[in-house]
Design a protein around this nucleic acid. Structure first.
Length: 745
DNA sequence: GCATTCACAATCGCG
DNA sequence: TTGTGAATGC
């Protein structure tokens, strides 16, 4: 017991040992939030206040819930597998599977991921003969999802204009389509579950009685529906309600665009009669200067709950700022700094390159590639979203549930087997006529089961062969374990041979193989190893590829993706008006404040060293844009910043053009306000007047130990000045000018 | 049925 | 600049 609670600071301890009452924990970045959450659970169980069955802990990401389970398992000798710890979607899914009948779902209901959903909407538009340009699928998707996230069915949305009425029509049709095929999208998982509990009093009471402690991670990210779900589950209106332990940070709320409602924090205070908000402000991650800078920045936001991070560590290094001429220059600077850091012993994997939008990674990747630095870009295509995997999953879906029109359409002619648009059209007409699924129509058309089976081996083409294929797979699946089913399906569907012949098919084959591996480990780990369970798993777990994870590589990702992570060094690039804060955020309610929180999240990822950089010109969408530095830089007090200006820029004539360009671009600030314009101009001038010395790029030098070489770069100022020398024999080194005792040649 | 061409759009993205 | 989807040609 002592070991469980030891090492907690007073606030953490208070939170962990709170008596039976609902609580809101304001946990700043790096304040040991996860530790508090997991220790709280362990403490509740260990002290006998609740059994593991009485706890429901909910997170947003699978990663977070896995980590939570692992940490609890490390603290207590219990099996965490049966516990109700998971994501909102995962837990709702669990309830819906357990009570599918009460929820009005077929036993084999399938989960739609974002891509499936879009495909269905497109199919619907085609059916309705609606022009995609007039009503972009993306927009319809957004409308439907947002309505659901607000907890609204089509009948509950108010429509005051013709556009909304049209959207609602789509919402309704989409809904009937999904229900007919037994498909449930992500938002539907939550809404269904919520409605199930609302309608079914017995179930509601069952779960209310079962869960006495509900713990919520990242509470600031909850949307309205999730909050209502929590309220319902806790039963706030009942005398014997559960208590909620919510952990969150309003300053790190960066997901308003996907429905997060920070007002939930105030609502929680009120609805759950929160007596006291506990603030965790001691930061165990970053050095003082970084924290001070982040604090100063976030101070510019209004209506905060209020929080100031502090550390018992020292100030550490100043926040470095670099003003680049071009995006290429910015990337080159970052590469140079990385090389220096790496040679000083910082692991590449402990360095992150963050940016506001994905498009910015390209320039960085280019420079990193040329410098032979290994890197990993996060947020690309996920494993289960790849087309070859999607195709394979479609076959599996048909095995489990042949009435899945969506899956059928995906693979009925893939690999090509001579079923063209014409056959398909007939099939769809037939299905429409009899109000049945495409599969039933196909059965009818191909002469029914008996014919297809008696044709065994002969039918190679057309509809009968497809019908035969699927039935054959279904029979095989009944007797084989999951991985073998998949192997069988891959071979007999022709996917393997198809990709085997394709030009770039090797990687796809690898992925298909990986699918068998994924199924193998799924069968080992999951309680329910059925095909349907595996399909749900594939949709709910995006399937982040864990391969080559151990390799020491730089981490490239958006600021959003970096939330929750930490690194020794963080490079935050593209700090320009229009990019960060992003142009589009101007049209959003409180958009600028959300951008500022995003910046805050980015800064607080750094443990020891933080670089902020911006470029005066940047290639975007094939056009050169001229930008001014982000206002966020000017919102950080000067004494925390250290402006870097490599002398290479000062000495070359490029610097002159930089100042001129800067003057020119200030006039083009699309944001209207030009906060900090003077300050930046001032710094530019200050930097240009100093730092002219006998040392310059291209200067040949001699070193006592390394021999002769040439200066290829340098940075810093005053006593801190460092030069990068390419030696003839000893390679490239960064040297402190003051100590290196270089002799000019 | 498949390959090539053209127009168009372009934040962030958990499950 | 790059990726996507529809239109077009073989």
């Amino acid at each position: 017991m002592i070991s469980l609670l030891s090492g907690l600071n007073p606030e953490q301890l208070e939170a962990v040992t709170l008596p039976y009452q609902s609580a809101l924990i304001l946990a700043g970045a790096g304040s040991g939030k996860t530790r508090v959450l997991t220790t709280r659970i362990a403490h509740l169980i260990h002290s006998g206040q609740v059994s593991p069955n009485g706890i429901l802990a909910v997170t947003f990401t699978n990663k977070a819930s896995r980590e939570m389970m692992a940490r609890i398992a490390a603290m207590l000798p219990i099996n965490t597998r049966g516990m109700w710890i998971g994501t909102f979607h995962g837990l709702c899914h669990r309830m819906l599977r357990a009570h599918y009948q009460d929820a009005g779902l077929p036993k084999t209901f399938q989960i739609l991921d974002i891509g499936d959903q879009q495909a269905i909407i497109k199919r619907m538009l085609k059916d309705l003969a609606v022009d995609e340009k007039a009503f972009p699928p993306r927009q319809i998707q957004w409308f439907i999802n947002h309505a659901k996230e607000e907890g609204l069915r089509a009948s509950q949305v108010e429509a005051h204009d013709s556009f909304t009425r049209r959207m609602l029509e789509f919402y309704r049709v989409y809904e009937t389509l999904c229900m007919r095929e037994g498909m449930v999208d992500f938002a539907e998982l939550l809404l269904r579950c919520y409605e199930l509990l609302t309608r079914n009093e017995i179930l509601r009471h069952h779960y209310r009685d079962r869960f006495s402690h509900i713990l919520v991670d990242e509470f600031q990210d909850t949307n309205r529906l999730q909050y209502r779900w929590l309220k319902l589950l806790a039963g706030v209106d009942l005398p014997r309600s559960a208590v909620v332990f919510a952990v969150g940070d309003d300053d790190q709320s960066i997901y308003a665009f996907r429905g997060a409602h920070t007002g939930n924090m105030q609502d929680l205070e009120h609805d759950f009669a929160i007596q006291k908000i506990i603030k965790l402000e001691q930061n165990y991650r970053s050095h003082g200067n970084i924290l001070e800078a982040a604090n100063a920045l976030i101070e510019h936001n209004r209506g905060r709950l209020g929080k100031n991070l502090w550390t018992s560590e020292g100030h550490g290094e100043p926040v470095r700022v670099y003003n680049a001429v071009t995006d290429f220059d910015e990337a080159a600077f970052i590469v140079d700094e990385i090389k220096a850091l790496h040679s000083e012993g910082v692991a590449l994997s402990d360095i992150a390159l963050l940016y506001r939008s994905n498009a910015q990674s390209r320039v960085l990747e280019h420079s990193l590639f040329n410098a032979s630095l290994s890197y990993r870009v996060y947020g690309g295509m996920r494993f289960f979203e790849r087309q070859e995997i999607k195709h394979a999953l479609a076959y599996l879906r048909l095995i489990a549930h042949p009435d899945d029109d969506h899956a059928l359409l995906r693979v009925i002619n893939f690999p090509p087997r001579g079923i063209g648009a014409r056959t398909l059209e007939q099939l769809q007409d037939e299905a429409k006529l009899h109000q049945t699924s495409l599969w039933s129509a196909a059965l009818n058309k191909s002469g029914g089961e008996t014919t297809a089976i008696s044709d065994e081996g002969k039918a190679k083409k057309g509809l009968p062969s497809f019908v035969h294929l699927i039935m054959m797979m279904q029979r095989a699946c009944a007797n084989l374990p999951l991985p073998e089913t998949i192997r069988y399906m891959l071979t007999h569907s022709g996917l393997l041979s198809h990709y085997g012949l394709e030009r770039d098919g090797a990687e796809r084959l690898e992925n298909l193989n990986e699918l068998i591996n994924a199924a193998t480990s799924f069968v080992h780990e999951a309680e329910d190893d059925s095909l349907v369970a595996f399909l749900s798993h594939a949709s709910l777990e995006g399937g982040e590829h864990q391969a080559d994870h151990h390799q020491d590589a730089l981490q490239l990702m958006t600021v959003h993706a970096a939330k929750g992570l930490e690194f020794h060094t963080v490079f935050l690039s593209g700090l320009e008006e229009g990019l960060f804060p992003h142009e589009n955020s101007r049209n959003e309610v409180n958009g600028l404040e959300e951008e500022r929180r995003l910046m805050y999240v980015a800064m607080t990822r750094a443990r020891r060293r933080l670089y902020l950089s911006f470029s005066q010109s940047r290639m975007l969408h094939g056009q050169t844009h001229y930008n001014i530095a982000s206002r966020f830089i000017t919102e950080i007090p000067d004494h925390l910043l250290k402006w870097l200006q490599p002398l290479s820029k000062v000495n070359s004539e490029s610097f002159r053009s930089v100042s001129e360009q800067a003057g020119f671009t200030f006039g083009r600030n699309s944001w209207g306000q030009s906060a900090g314009k003077e300050a930046i101009q001032e710094r530019l001038t200050a930097n240009s007047s100093e730092q002219l010395s006998r040392w310059r790029i291209g200067q040949n030098v001699s070193h006592a130990k390394f021999g002769t070489g040439v200066i290829i770069n340098y940075q810093g100022e005053g006593a801190d000045i460092r030069v990068q020398v390419q030696f003839n024999r000893a390679g490239t080194k960064w040297l402190l000018l003051e100590y290196a005792k270089l002799t000019p040649l």
